[in-house]
Design a protein around this nucleic acid. Structure first.
Lengths: 339, 339
DNA sequence: AACAAACCCGAAAACGATGCCGGAAAGGGT
DNA sequence: ACCCTTTCCGGCATCGTTTTCGGGTTTGTT
């Protein structure tokens, strides 16, 4: 690693002071036209790059955003892409840390990012996260923070998320409209907010349509894909056999689909199926899977925008919450009434 | 954002010098037991965190690795996870930038990371990248660099990658062993190394088995999933209809599978299918898809290990190349001879 | 000719930490 | 009582940059 040319080198070579060089490079007013030219020419020639560390130390800001996410699945990767795009545009660089759905690693990551002196945080909490001391620590230090996707309620901080309850509603409503009467729910981990919200929408819609809820038709399973198969098998061989399944993620839906086919049931005739996330792959399968679009990219962008706004203005945004409305894409897996 | 407590605050409060505080905190030898205790106690109380920027400026190293990748699909996300794990362990933090398969963005990213003063680079080049000035720039500055997955040949730098030719071979050989005679290739973009290497393995194996190559059976298509469907339709309705398809990625394979089913052909009886990457989803589909495992996580870890090694030793590793051997997982989509 | 006003530029402090060097105080030996 | 070691600590430079303040030279005006 070779020594970078510094402002001092230029100053020395031109027999002027570092202050002058600094001003010349930044087009400050009081510097002679001649010196300015000379400085710029030499800077170009020596491939001078200002040292960001020195600047950060002085200005007390690093132009870096710390992002903590539970993993890098399709949805989160897409969201990160959205964040990245906006952040880059605004001159920020992001540091992405995966908590791997572990609370411990989430804490370690906050600590690391904290003493990497990031300017702020953008976080989606892990499914294990039930206590929020690390979040509060960030707040106490008055460091900008935005939560997204998997947010925490009862905490005063800007949030960007999907209306998951609505997502649960539209999926369930659609299945009812298609004439399914016995709708099962493949839910995620018990304490995961987004899962429970979708479940809430499901329950609500069933009640609204005077369909009684059968607890045996609701199965919580991990996002591990094998669980989905086991759960589905359980459902379809139980005493109260469902005629439709609403899965809380496309991965779960795909697992369910496999089992349904294995059992020789036809989709959508005998069993209807709706997923969540609208991953591209849902369109590629046979049958294609109906799914709820959650606008991951847009959520990412909106999150970053709020963050940037927080950095640039002094107004309190701690109560701000942006909620995206989901949209159902109806495909073969649930469309048995011709339209 | 509140002011962090600094070494100076502690020094002032204890009426000692900053140097003493610094030494006390780092357990340096020449500092009295009493002062040491006092310093540590106060540091604890004030929640003192050393300022990394100041340290980095002084030591000229940031403990940060810049990672540039074309996107965040399953394979790369898995690799990044591997890198992350090893890097974290060694005290490094990673900055991940996506080039989005664009050469321009790859250059912009290198520049950004370069003047973020990362300690080194870990790069997988975009499919557009045909000129390597940015890579050479890194080398000229003598900054550690490791290429992985999509590497560049004819360039003297450590690399970690899969033996893609072998991957092409085992997939093709397997299809031949299963009695398929007319094997098509769904390849990736024309100038993508990994794609061409897999193709090479395919061609080589055909020749070795005295099967003549039909150029019409080789279709290059983008990783965009829709292309795969178009290409497959083209293949299966052309004059020389293949009885098997080797797809260079699972996504392409899934697209192909959809079309095969649409056309009413049975898998694996009439058409055999093998994918690449061994994504978890290949096991979930019906039929499950045979696929070549590329050990993404391990490749990520190996890459990071080489990087760390480069940082800690002075030996030249520019010729080092770690090549992982792929392994075929045989599933329903290509298994028509009972075993 | 004298004085004000531009116009340029340099010195020095500051950001937070480390590390070398030198010096004061304390202790031990003769 | 003197000298020589330890032991412990403070001063200062350093990393690369910005910024404030002040001073010198030139130009222009009356």
């Amino acid at each position: 690693m070779e020594r970078q040319t510094t402002i001092k080198d230029i100053a020395l070579a031109l027999r002027i002071s570092t202050s002058t060089v600094s001003r010349a490079l930044r087009d400050a007013p009081d510097v002679g036209i001649e010196t300015r030219k000379a400085v710029k020419a030499l800077a170009e020639e020596l491939d001078y790059q200002p040292n960001k560390l020195a600047l950060s130390l002085l200005k007390k800001q690093t132009n870096t955003i710390g992002i903590i996410i539970p993993n890098l699945d399709y949805v989160l990767a897409t969201m990160v892409k959205g964040i990245d795009e906006v952040a880059l545009e605004a001159g920020y660089t992001v540091m992405v840390c995966q908590s791997d759905e572990s609370f411990g690693r989430e804490m370690v990551n906050t600590k690391r990012l904290l003493d990497s002196l990031v300017d702020g945080f953008i976080i989606s909490v892990s499914s294990e996260t039930m206590v929020f001391d690390h979040i509060k620590k960030i707040q106490n230090k008055k460091i900008p923070l935005v939560l997204f996707d998997r947010v925490i309620n009862n905490i005063s901080v800007p949030k960007v998320r999907l209306d998951n309850v609505e997502g649960g509603r539209i999926a369930t409503k659609h299945l009812i409209d298609q004439g399914y009467k016995n709708i099962a729910l493949l839910a995620g981990p018990e304490n995961l907010n987004i899962s429970n919200e979708r479940k809430e929408g499901y329950l609500e819609t069933l009640k609204q349509n005077k369909i009684k809820v059968d607890k045996n038709l609701i199965i919580h399973c991990d996002f591990n894909q094998e669980y989905a198969k086991v759960a589905t098998r359980e459902l379809l061989t139980g005493k109260n056999k469902p005629d439709a399944i609403f899965a809380i993620s496309d991965r779960l839906a795909i697992g369910a689909m496999t089992v349904i086919k294995e059992l020789g049931l036809s989709i959508p005739k005998e069993i209807g199926l709706v997923g969540f996330n609208n991953e591209p792959i849902t369109q590629l399968l046979t049958p294609s899977i109906s799914s709820v679009e959650m606008y991951a990219f847009e959520i990412g962008k909106a999150t970053a925008k709020i963050f940037i706004e927080m950095m640039h203005s002094e107004v309190d945004m701690s109560e701000k919450e942006i909620v995206f409305k989901p949209k159902l894409f109806i495909r073969e897996s649930s469309n048995r009434i011709r339209k």
